[in-house]
């Protein structure tokens, strides 16, 4: 039969789609810059314990706050701790929150949307109605509330932010699945007797990867912003751990005398958010994701 040839053909088409997207992305200089910047920040974060110029808890009270110098490239804080080291370790937490919380959101959102879109009918109506209701809730306030009620720990922060950010993902996924499930290859999978779980994970999710990737890239910066916002208010990451939001909050307290303590952590956060937004916009154009459902 012709089946193997058909399969090979479709695989080839699949790779060319991604290759095509990559070529388009490479032409977008801002997006590429964002990608390079992001990858370097992630590598720096992963290697921090080995490359940080000083130990995390190294204090030098005699030195105190000092402006950037040869020994301390970005200066030191009021306890004489090296700011570069602080930013590197803070970046680990900030990036970790960004990626982990987004993964939580991704997992819930994709599953929820896929099930709603695939099963359809009344189940779909109920599931999406719930999403609508949750959309209307003032979540920023709820996260503050959650952090107050359950104490300020990092795991909860991941979960709370993740639990908030999945809604749009669910809507996008549902729209994708609704279109996809009309197509022949899904009908073929159903008639082969595959279980809905297999169909969703093996056939529907991979075909909706484009919008998922784009939206994920755009969710990470909003998650990181949320973490920094909470840390700034003192409701997020707690000392002795640190994050960019927390460093900015310390910097803001002493900016009159030691402006570098505000400016450098601020630059780290802003540059990362820039990189992610540019990359997300670039990916949207490259993968030609148009008009998501919201």
């Amino acid at each position: 039969m012709n089946e193997p040839i058909l399969a090979v053909g479709s695989v080839e088409q699949g790779t060319s789609l991604w290759k095509d997207a990559w070529i388009r992305l490479r032409r977008n200089r801002l997006a590429l810059f964002g990608l390079v910047l992001l990858v370097s920040f992630v590598i720096l974060a992963l290697l921090t314990p080995w490359i940080a110029p000083y130990a995390y808890d190294d204090q030098n009270l005699d030195l105190g706050a000092s402006p950037p110098s040869a020994a301390h490239w970005l200066g030191t804080d009021i306890f004489g701790r090296d700011l570069l080291t602080q930013i590197l370790y803070g970046g680990r937490i900030s990036l970790a929150v960004g990626f982990v919380a987004t993964s939580v959101a991704l997992l819930i959102g994709v599953t929820w949307g896929a099930v709603a879109g695939y099963v359809g009918g009344r189940v779909d109506a109920v599931m999406m109605r719930l999403v609508d209701i949750l959309y209307a809730l003032p979540f920023m306030i709820f996260i503050v509330l959650l952090m107050v009620v359950f104490g300020r720990n990092l795991l909860l922060l991941f979960l709370a932010i993740g639990a908030v950010e999945w809604l749009t993902m669910a809507r996008i996924m549902r729209g994708q699945v609704q279109t996809l499930r009309q197509q022949e290859f899904v009908e073929a999978a159903i008639s082969l007797g595959l279980s809905p779980v297999t169909i969703i994970w093996r056939h529907l999710v991979p075909n909706a990867l484009g919008p998922i990737i784009v939206y994920t890239t755009l969710t990470i910066p909003s998650v990181m912003l949320l973490e920094a916002f909470l840390s700034f208010l003192g409701l997020g990451v707690q000392p002795p751990q640190t994050s960019w939001g927390l460093l900015i909050s310390y910097g803001a307290e002493t900016m009159e005398e030691y402006p570098w303590l505000l400016i450098f952590p601020g630059m780290a956060l802003t540059l990362t958010l820039f990189a992610l937004n540019f990359l997300g916009d670039g990916l949207r154009d490259a993968l030609d994701v148009r008009g998501s459902t919201d």
């Binding site: 910066p221 912003l225 920094a228 916002f229 700034f232 939001g245 900015i248 909050s249 910097g251 803001a252 900016m255 009159e256 402006p259 505000l262 400016i263 601020g266 956060l269 802003t270 958010l273 820039f274 937004n277 540019f278």
Partner: peptide, 22 residues
């Protein structure tokens, strides 16, 4: 506008104070 989106409120505020206030 892109800068405005990427610059969080809690950073912009202190920076504006630093520049125009201090």
């Amino acid at each position: 506008a892109m800068i405005g989106i990427c610059m969080p409120t809690f950073l912009l505020g202190p920076l504006l104070v630093l520049l125009f206030g201090i």
